[in-house]
């Protein structure tokens, strides 16, 4: 972060333009986020405008930032310079803000917004969900993580291009002739096709991608354990033996932990951004004076 090098900079000689850069805004955010996230500190509700306190933690932080840049701890003299620099920044910052210099500066405004959102939403990084939270997320979104029902089947293809008008009759006869022949290898029958004859544990979506929607719906309704058809697909007609139907079920956390974690984080980030602005909106009354004809549609009507 650039804040590191700025904080570590030497004292004095700083031009005013620099004051509006990161360290100051950083500090403002620190203040703002404390305000937003933790509320007032009871015994010191409004900081004394003319008191600047540099806490031991802040001094340590300045030293840390220095160390990260220079790969060593600052000397006593360097540390003094860091603290002096920080105090000067703070002095100038407060003066600048009291003069209203921050208000019309787009750069400052955007930066504040970015930092604030980051502070609020970035917290998810630190949040490690408990298993309980993940289980709750899984339960509340059971459909999304559901293990779909799966079908295992064999199919014999009857090619309308080869069979012409006889296609369906041929398929129907095939079904009749095959009754009771449960172990017959499907690949020994029917017309050539690029479609595999044996399909194992396919979800509905996969069947649809291979054979088209119509076939997928039809196979879904078949009974297990007999040759059935004719069934139409995007390619022609099929005779199908449904070997097994594995019912869909709710997944356990162990099966889908990675997915649930990813989705939980995603949801949490969206939720936090939303909450964050809802919370802020609650504190303000927002009114937009739309010019004629430019308002939202419902107002225009």
């Amino acid at each position: 972060m650039s804040a590191g090098s700025a904080d570590a900079g030497g004292p004095g000689g700083e031009r005013f333009g620099r004051l509006l850069r990161e360290p100051l805004v950083h500090f403002a955010i620190l203040g703002a986020s404390i305000f937003v996230l933790y509320g007032y500190v009871a015994e010191d509700p409004i900081p004394d405008e003319r008191r600047i306190e540099v806490s031991a933690a802040k001094v340590e932080q300045l030293a840390e930032l220095f160390a990260r840049t220079w790969q060593r701890r600052p000397t006593r003299g360097e540390l003094q310079a860091l603290v002096d620099g920080f105090v000067r920044e703070e002095l100038a910052y407060r003066e600048g803000v009291s003069l209203g210099l921050d208000r019309d500066d787009t750069v400052v405004r955007r930066r504040v917004r970015q930092k604030l959102e980051f502070t609020a939403v970035g917290l998810t990084k630190a949040l490690r969900p408990t298993d309980e939270e993940l289980v709750t997320h899984l339960r509340e979104n059971a459909e999304r993580f559901r293990r779909p029902s799966r079908l295992s089947f064999r199919q014999v293809f009857v090619d309308p291009k080869l069979r012409g008008e006889d296609t369906r009759r041929f398929a129907t006869n095939l079904v009749a002739s095959l009754q009771g022949e449960s172990s017959l290898p499907a690949e020994a029958l029917g017309d050539p096709t690029l479609l595999d004859h044996v399909h194992t544990q396919l979800a509905r979506e996969q069947i649809e991608r291979l054979f088209g929607d119509q076939f997928a719906s039809a196979v879904d309704r078949l009974e297990v354990g007999s040759w059935q058809g004719p069934i139409q697909s995007a390619y022609g007609v099929h005779v199908v033996f449904l070997d097994e139907r594995t019912a869909g079920r709710v997944a356990s956390l162990e099966e889908v932990r990675g997915d649930v974690l990813r989705e939980w984080e995603h949801a949490r980030r969206e939720e936090l951004t939303e909450d964050f602005y809802r919370g802020l909106e609650g504190k303000y009354e927002v009114r937009v004076d739309w010019p004629e004809g430019l308002g939202p549609e419902r107002d225009a009507k």
């Binding site: 290898p185 020994a188 029958l189």
Partner: peptide, 30 residues
């Protein structure tokens, strides 16, 4: 129609010579 003759009929209709390896596939040939 018996199953053997059906297979023969289908195969003839397709005029597909099926090699020995192909007619002796396991249930899960893949």
């Amino acid at each position: 129609m018996k199953i053997e003759s059906l297979i023969v009929a289908v195969l003839l209709a397709c005029a597909v010579p099926v090699g020995a390896a192909e007619s002796q596939v396991e249930y899960s040939p893949y």
